[in-house]
């Protein structure tokens, strides 16, 4: 392979996002974040523990700032984070494909 060709390959290469990888990454991060945020408040203790974080129950049925809620929050975080990650990757790849196809036609 000539250097020129190598340069073309490197310059033209457009990164793709792997939906599965993004789903796992966002899911793991989201789940861990929600679990740790809940656990941190529980460990600190005090009055009205997690009055603001508890508002998440509006979106996540059954969630509360308790140890049980932390575990449920972990599950919610994994599922919703995973969906967000996969959606992000899917959307990015579709747009990149469309733009690539447009460039090729052009």
């Amino acid at each position: 392979m000539t250097r020129q060709r190598e340069e073309i390959i490197l310059r033209r290469a457009v990164a793709r996002l792997r939906a599965a990888v993004m789903a796992v990454t966002f899911g793991a991060t989201g789940g861990a974040a929600l679990f740790l945020a809940t656990a941190w408040l529980l460990l600190r203790g005090g009055e009205n523990v997690g009055q603001h974080l508890g508002l998440l129950r509006n979106y996540l049925p059954g969630y509360s700032v308790t140890w049980g809620g932390a575990v449920l929050g972990l599950a919610y975080g994994v599922v919703l984070g995973g969906i967000a990650g996969a959606s992000l990757a899917w959307t990015y790849n579709r747009i990149a494909d469309l733009r690539g196809a447009a460039t090729t036609r052009g």
Binding site: L10, V14, A15, L88, A89, T91, Y92, I95, A96
Partner: peptide, 16 residues
Amino acid sequence: AAAFARYDPVALGGAV
């Protein structure tokens, strides 16, 4: 080549 590939700014911006 994939590791050194560029992100498409419009695509990433659009997705986010």
